[in-house]
Design a protein around this nucleic acid. Structure first.
Lengths: 219, 219
DNA sequence: CAGAGTTTATTACAGCATGTCAGAAAACAC
DNA sequence: GTGTTTTCTGACATGCTGTAATAAACTCTG
């Protein structure tokens, strides 16, 4: 929690709905400029200078609101985080048909990946050049490992999933998902959503629910 | 092909076995210093300055042998490239038992990943900050997509692998492999080789050869 | 082994992005 | 309007990059 949050004096005492301070507006416009810039340029070309050139403010104004460019990226990641965990919940909580709900979850994941692909690629590009952001990114991915692992263990106990190390499997499947989505939807030239979904879904179902061959094949 | 190769005046006319020029030795010692540095530091902390501090040469000497740090990384990648494609060949060429040879290939892959994990992580960390290296890295990964895709198509024709888009599947499986290996073996604190192999193998076999449930489960 | 020619390495410099700080300008309160 | 706080900017110091002019170290020849 080392970033300036725009509204500064309130420590979370539910001061919502107060007139947005000038600071909050400025900060938002910097974030807009960042999103806009990253739509057409890779993260490596982003500098504080050309970021702020996309706003009506001077370069040093940036530092009023962010520690550095990686802090900006962290904020952008936070914004999309919610939408991503959302779709995943279907399978993670559903006690009903495992395969159907997994398919639904993966579809939601591909959809949101399609939308946020650019941001996700930018963040994953930015992560290795900053220890803090790298940690945030790893933690973000790791959080999925845990919940997926839990669901796998649950299905193993039910006997519908073979025995293997759930955490390691969750880790591998998640890295695949992240890698594929970022690669497929990270650039302006986006891949075919359906093919990507088909592929990812097949891998997950084949691996986790191999006894239901027919269902998995969509027959 | 924009890097200085050490031996400069010969254009490949088989002038091997000439006494290694001073230049070649210097270049090699810079590469050594790079490998050594990256054993204990992330790529983001590597600068030309502290790289050359690990040698007996001055900072600008670096530029006699490499265009920049990313050029150095490209060379380091080239060095490990061979070992990686090597192991993969078993499955890619073997006409015999598909599952057995795939297992063998994956074992070889995990072994080499265990050895070169640090370099692979460094290169993949460095890639997003340089257009050229990013391209080299993507091409490197993409080369596996192609050969794996070909083998998948081959097995689909034989009827032992279900029908799906081979290239997309190869892509997904390869991204998983790369992500898992880099994450598992990229830091000094390495993960358990056997678990990683178990996990990766299960995913590949479940997905590509789902009809052989028993064999796949190592019964 | 002296001197010319070539290869290899260094010192010194210019460029560019970062992050800070002191002070200016705006916005607000009264 | 004047005083106070919030928001912003110009100017600066730092650190790393890549280059160019020059020096040092080899090598080859007579």
């Amino acid at each position: 929690m080392s970033e300036n949050t725009g509204t500064h004096s309130d420590s979370g005492v539910s001061v919502r709905h107060m007139a947005p301070s000038k600071a909050a507006l400025t900060r938002a416009s910097i974030l807009d400029a960042g999103r806009k810039y990253l739509e057409t340029h890779p993260f490596r070309d982003l500098t504080v200078g050309n970021l702020m050139a996309g706003t009506e403010y001077s370069r040093p104004a940036f530092y009023l609101y962010f520690n550095d460019l990686h802090g900006l990226m962290e904020t952008l990641l936070d914004e999309v985080k919610g939408g991503i965990v959302e779709g995943a919940r279907i399978w993670l909580t559903n006690e009903g048909d495992a395969i159907a709900s997994l398919q639904e979850s993966l579809k939601a994941l591909v959809d949101v990946g399609y939308e946020c692909g650019g941001i996700l690629k930018s963040v994953s590009d930015a992560a290795p050049s900053d220890a803090r952001l790298e940690h945030v990114w790893e933690t973000f991915l790791g959080s999925f490992d845990e919940v997926v692992s839990a669901r796998i263990a649950h299905d193993q106990a039910k006997g519908i999933t073979p025995e293997f190390d759930p955490l390691s499997m969750a880790h591998a499947l998640n890295r695949m998902g992240a890698g594929v989505l970022i690669q497929a939807f990270g650039t302006t030239q986006k891949a075919d959503k359906d093919v990507v979904l088909e592929t990812i879904t097949r891998i997950w179902i084949s691996t986790l629910y191999p006894f239901n061959l027919n269902k998995a094949r969509g027959v």
